[in-house]
Design a binder for these strands. Structure first.
Length: 383
RNA sequence: GCUGGAGUCGUCUAGUGGCAAUGACAAGAGACUGUAAAUCUCUCGCGCUUCGCGCUUCGUAGGUUCGAGUCCUACCUCCAGCA
C-alpha cells in the first residue's frame, strides 16, 4: 500500500494547508509532526508509547541501519515495520544528512559517484552512492524513501552550493532510476542555501524529475538564523506542486512549525523533542515561573526539569496537557528521575515533548479548518 | 599505655619548599532543529570595579624559612598492630 496525499483545504490568508495522508485503510491529517527513530526506535519509547502520542509517520535512518543491523537482516525480518513493530507509515532518510554531519570536513569525501565515510562503529571505510541508498531503502521497505542528497553547511558559498545542487539533482535522477519498490514513495529534496534563485532553480529542476513528494532540506544547519530559514522555505515552496506532500527536513522548534506551516509545509521531523527530553527538558506553551528570577516577565517555552526549583513541585508539567506523563506524574517526580539519570524520566519527557508538538499540529489543523490560522499564529507568537 | 599510619573545598582524592591547591562524584546553571548527542559546556573558599585584584584556607597551636598543605615541636582526633 502506497501513501497517497490529498489536499483538503488551503488557508485564505497564509500558505497553510490541511491535508490527508491515505495509508491503506488508515488516514492521517497534515500538518503533521513525525518523531525521529533513527535506529528503528524512537529513543526510550516503545511503539505503543509512540502511538499514544498520536504520531502518524515516524522516521528511520538509512545510514545507521545500513551499518547495523544491515538491510539484509531487516529484509529477513519482513521489513522495518515487522522488525520494529511499527504499523504506521515510516519515512527513511537517505543518509544525506550524514553527508553533512559525518563527511563534510573532508571535501574529497564527497565525489560525483558517492560519499566516502569512515564508520564510527569500527573505523572501516564506507562508500554510499545514490543507487545504494535507494536500494537499501527498498530493502528496508519504508513507505517514503528520500533521495540521496548533499546537505551543505550554512557556511557554503554560492559557487559551492551551485555545484552541490547540480550534483544532488544528478543523484536524485540516479536514485529514481533504480527505485523499484511499488509500495514506496520516493521524495526529491530542494537545496539552495539562503539564495532565492538557487532555491527556485533547485525546486524547479527537482520537480521536473518527478517525485511522489518534495522535501525542503538544508535549512536547519549550524548557526543559521530563523529568518534565513523561513526565507529558504519561502523561496522553495512556491515551485512545488500543490497535490504533493511538502516535507521540511529537520525542523523543529514549536515556533518553526507554526511559521513553516504558514509557508505551506505539511510534514516535519526533528530530533529536538526526544533529545531535549533525554537532557531533562520539557516543552511548554509559555508559562511564568515566579521563582525563575532571571527572565522577569518573559514566558518560558521550555523548562529544565533538572532545576532545583522543581524539587517540591507536585503539579504536572502542564495542567491541560493530555499526554500520559502529564496525566500521571508530577514535576517533582520527573525532577527526581532526571537527577538520578533514570531511563524512565527520559521516557516520560519524550512522551510529553512529542505529544506537545503533535498537539501543536492538531491546533494548527483546527485553526486552518476554522479559517483562523492567521489568528492562531499571531496568538501563538505573542504568547 | 607503646609502635606505626592518617587528618586537604559537601564526599572521596592529588599534592613532599613557590598553589586558592589536582581529579572524580555531588551540587548549581546553560546549550541542543533530516540523532557520531542518555551528549557537550560553564560555575563550584569568600568578596570585589571579575581576561584582574584583595582576603581567608589544607585537624589545632607554635616554630624554621624570603616563602609551609608540604620541614620541626606539642597537642587533638581517627585507623592498624602490640600490650
Amino acid at each position: 500500500m502506497k501513501i497517497e496525499y490529498e489536499l483538503i483545504k488551503k488557508d485564505k490568508t497564509t500558505g497553510a494547508r490541511l491535508g490527508l495522508i491515505h495509508y491503506g485503510d488508515k488516514t492521517y491529517e497534515t500538518p503533521m509532526f513525525m518523531p525521529v527513530g533513527t535506529q528503528a526506535t524512537v529513543k526510550t519509547l516503545s511503539p505503543e508509547q509512540v502511538a499514544e502520542t498520536h504520531a502518524g509517520i515516524i522516521l528511520a535512518n538509512t545510514y545507521h541501519l545500513w551499518l547495523r543491523p544491515t538491510p539484509e537482516i531487516i529484509e529477513k525480518a519482513g521489513g522495518l515495520h515487522g522488525f520494529m513493530n511499527w504499523h504506521g507509515p515510516i519515512l527513511t532518510d537517505s543518509g544525506g544528512y550524514q553527508v553533512f554531519s559525518l563527511a563534510h570536513n573532508k571535501k574529497k569525501d564527497i565525489t560525483e559517484e558517492g560519499v566516502h565515510f569512515k564508520s564510527e562503529l569500527d573505523g572501516r571505510k564506507l562508500f554510499l552512492t545514490p543507487e545504494e541508498s535507494i536500494k537499501i531503502q527498498n530493502m528496508l521497505d519504508s513507505d517514503i524513501a528520500m533521495s540521496f542528497d548533499e546537505c551543505p553547511p550554512a557556511t557554503a558559498d554560492r559557487t559551492y552550493l551551485k555545484n552541490s545542487i547540480e550534483r544532488t539533482l544528478r543523484w536524485a535522477e540516479r536514485g529514481k532510476k533504480v527505485h523499484q519498490n511499488p509500495n514506496q514513495c520516493l521524495f526529491g529534496i530542494v537545496q539552495g542555501g539562503p539564495h532565492r534563485d538557487l532555491r527556485k532553480w533547485s525546486a524547479e529542476e527537482t520537480v521536473k524529475l518527478g517525485f511522489d513528494g518534495y522535501a525542503v532540506g538544508g535549512v536547519a544547519n549550524d548557526d543559521e538564523e530563523k529568518e534565513a530559514m523561513y526565507q529558504a522555505v519561502e523561496y522553495s515552496v512556491p515551485y512545488l506542486p500543490e497535490d504533493k506532500l511538502r516535507y521540511l527536513m529537520g525542523v523543529g522548534e514549536p515556533v518553526d512549525l507554526v511559521e513553516c506551516v504558514a509557508r505551506g509545509i505539511d510534514i516535519f521531523d526533528c530530533v529536538s523533542p526526544t533529545r531535549l527530553a533525554r537532557h531533562g527538558n520539557a516543552l511548554v506553551w509559555g508559562v511564568n515561573y515566579p521563582k525563575n528570577a532571571k527572565k522577569s516577565g518573559a514566558k518560558e517555552k521550555r523548562i529544565n526539569l533538572k532545576n532545583a526549583r522543581f524539587t517540591e513541585d507536585f503539579t504536572p508539567i502542564e495542567e491541560d496537557c493530555d499526554c500520559y506523563t502529564c496525566k500521571t506524574y508530577t514535576k517533582a517526580y520527573i525532577h527526581h528521575l532526571v537527577k538520578c539519570d533514570e531511563a524512565f524520566g527520559k521516557t516520560l519527557l519524550s512522551i510529553h515533548n512529542i505529544r506537545f508538538l503533535i498537539r501543536l499540529t492538531e491546533k494548527m489543523r483546527e485553526a486552518i479548518r476554522n479559517d483562523a490560522f492567521d489568528e492562531f499564529r499571531r496568538e501563538f507568537l505573542s504568547s
